[in-house]
Each structure stands twice: as structure tokens, then as C-alpha cells.
């Protein structure tokens, strides 16, 4: 597959003014102000292949939205080159944006006070979509998202989930090659979240749309993407398959064991005791030890008498927390 997004050593610096504290400080601020340069992105390089769904993750302030803004052509980078779908985003803007769709989770592109369908019609004119193509796309979107009951309701009367469905449809009316989703599931209930995820997957499969997704919800990442780019403090920290990362951390298992009686100390080779309370203990395998159920039972039963035990894997949220910890974010 050819790469559709090519990001090469992009840097972006911002100058921000510092605010002083207290009444006196802010009074001084009337006359003099200090500035500080912030390197929002430092040498960021990556490439994304056509048809991929990529999760772009990182803590707040890591440079996620700056990257998205550069990719959308809203910001120009301080240095570096970028090619998306054969365009440099901030040059030849009008032609380029015809190929992208953007959903900002907390901002709407639809009109607040008019029925949704009329916003769509306006978008049709803005993107100069042919009537027949528009109808066809709308039908498909309606079929998958079940939108038609919402068409004639003003946006302000819709629930958060309904709004998000409409936003997604609005961003896809012109069948963009690339779709940017900034926190698409924020604040949604469980059912809608699943529906939105299914829809994203469907569009990706049906239209081969490349999708770049920023989110704090690791379950989104788990359900949707196979590739992630982890960014922190303006640098790319990890770029690759999510399953590899998951496997790496999923090797760590947490085992809860119930013993037949109370032991004073519990020691099993290759395992750490996280918690020990009366006759129940929580254990975790050391990074060097591969967890193996039969092997583990044999090992425990040599020394202790057990009643019951359960094994659980680390959750995706914990993976992210561990990652952040590892990179000191």
C-alpha cells in the first residue's frame, strides 16, 4: 500500500506570553510581559498508509491538536515537509480540503438552529457535490447511522449522541479520502459509542477511507485501530502496531489466589506479591517470567494448599498509563 500521509521532521514553535500572579503582578503585566517559546512539535516524522485507521494518542498538551491542525492545513509548521494525498496541506488549500473530512468532538460544523438536513444541503453546495452523488451518499449514511428521523429536527434539540452521528455524516458527505476525528466518542453513552465505532469501521472498509483518530478512550483504540502513534512532549515516542504493544504488556497477568488457610508469608519464584490479606493474595508475574497456568499451579501447590484462583490481563487503560509512566509523561 502506498503511503497517503507523509510527515517529515515537522517542527512547530509557539511564542506565548506569561501571566503574573496576584493583583500587583497583573498590574505590572500592564507594562511588561515576558514571552516564552514552546516547542509544540520537535522533529515529528511518520507516514500513514492508505486505508489505515491510526490512533494518534498522547496526554493533554502533547501536541496532538497541533499535528491535526497542520494536517488540516490550518497551521503552517515552522520547519519540515508534509505531503498528504499529493498535496502540501497549507498550500493549494481549496483543492486539498476537498479530500479531507474533519470532526472536532467538542465543536459543531452544523447549524445550531436549523434542521440537520438543511445544514447538509449547505455542505453539498460548499463542497460542490453532484446531486446524484449527494443523494447516494446520504442514503448510505442514513442506512448505517439511522439518521432520517433526525433530518428535520434542529441540531440544538438533539442529544449528544445524535449530534455526533450527524457530525460524522456531515464530515463524510463529500466522500473524503482522509477523515480526521478529534475525540469522536467523548461524552457518549455506551450504546452510541459502539454504534459510532461500528460506523467508523464500516466507512473504512466500504470507502477505503484513511482515518486518523485522537482519543483518550483506549477502548476506541482497541476496537478501531491497529496502528498507533504515541506522542509526548512534542516527540513521537512509539509508532507501530497496537497489538504488539498490547502483547508486550498483556504478558503481565494478575492472579488472585485463595488459600485453604492463612500463611504468614507467601513466596513463589518468578512472581511478585502485590497484596496479601488473610488467606487471599494477589500476585503478578515478573517481566522475566512467562505466565503458564499449569506451571503456575504446580509451583503453588508444591508449597501451599489452595481453594480457588483467577487470572486477569492488564486493561488497555492500564497499558496507556504504564506507557506514559515509562516515557515519564
Amino acid at each position: 500500500m502506498p503511503s497517503i500521509i507523509e510527515f517529515q521532521s515537522i517542527c512547530k514553535n509557539f511564542k506565548i506570553s506569561l501571566k503574573n500572579k496576584g493583583v500587583w503582578g497583573s498590574f505590572l503585566g500592564l507594562f511588561k510581559r515576558k514571552y516564552k517559546t514552546i516547542e509544540a512539535l520537535q522533529n515529528v516524522s511518520f507516514s500513514i498508509e492508505e486505508g489505515d485507521i491510526v490512533g494518534y494518542i498522547g496526554p493533554n498538551g502533547a501536541g496532538k491538536s497541533t499535528t491535526i491542525k497542520i494536517m488540516c492545513g490550518i497551521l503552517t509548521p515552522t520547519s519540515g515537509t508534509c505531503q498528504i494525498a499529493g498535496f502540501v496541506p497549507w498550500k493549494d488549500r481549496k483543492k486539498y480540503v476537498q479530500h479531507i473530512g474533519v470532526v472536532f468532538g467538542q465543536r459543531s460544523q452544523l447549524w445550531w438552529d436549523v434542521p440537520v438536513i438543511e445544514s447538509f444541503e449547505l455542505l453539498k453546495d460548499i463542497y460542490k457535490i453532484e446531486e446524484s452523488a449527494y443523494k447516494e451518499t446520504l442514503q448510505l449514511l442514513d442506512k448505517t447511522l439511522n439518521l432520517s428521523p433526525l433530518f428535520h429536527v434542529p441540531l440544538r434539540q438533539l442529544s449528544l449522541g445524535q449530534k455526533m452521528k450527524c457530525e460524522l455524516a456531515g464530515a463524510l458527505l463529500h466522500k473524503p479520502k482522509i477523515l480526521f476525528l478529534d475525540e469522536p466518542t467523548i461524552g457518549l453513552d455506551a450504546v452510541t459509542k459502539l454504534a459510532v465505532r461500528d460506523f467508523i469501521k464500516y466507512i473504512n472498509k466500504e470507502w477505503k477511507t484513511t482515518i486518523i483518530l485522537t482519543t483518550h478512550d483506549m477502548n476506541d483504540i482497541d476496537a478501531l485501530t491497529n496502528k498507533i502513534i504515541l506522542i509526548g512532549k512534542g516527540k513521537v515516542l512509539y509508532n507501530g502496531s497496537f497489538s504488539v504493544l498490547k502483547n508486550k504488556y498483556a504478558r503481565t497477568k494478575t492472579i488472585t489466589v485463595e488459600f485453604a488457610k492463612e500463611y504468614k508469608t507467601i513466596q513463589i519464584e518468578g512472581y511478585r506479591v502485590l497484596e496479601h490479606n488473610k488467606n487471599v493474595a494477589t500476585l503478578q508475574n515478573e517481566p522475566t517470567t512467562e505466565f503458564h497456568t499449569q506451571h503456575f499451579i504446580e509451583e503453588v501447590c508444591k508449597k501451599y494448599e489452595i481453594v480457588d484462583f483467577s487470572v486477569s490481563s492488564i486493561s488497555v487503560d492500564e497499558i496507556l498509563a504504564q506507557l506514559y509512566k515509562e516515557y515519564e509523561l
Binding site: K69, C72, G73, K95, V97, R107, I126, Y127
Partner: peptide, 14 residues
């Protein structure tokens, strides 16, 4: 301030 300007940039209209 509302970020609407960003939106204007991603539309294929002057």
C-alpha cells in the same frame, strides 16, 4: 476565539 476560524480553513471556499 470559538475556533470557528479553523473550520473556515478546511472548507473549499474562499
Amino acid at each position: 476565539q470559538s475556533g470557528e476560524l479553523d473550520r473556515l480553513f478546511i472548507r473549499p471556499v474562499n
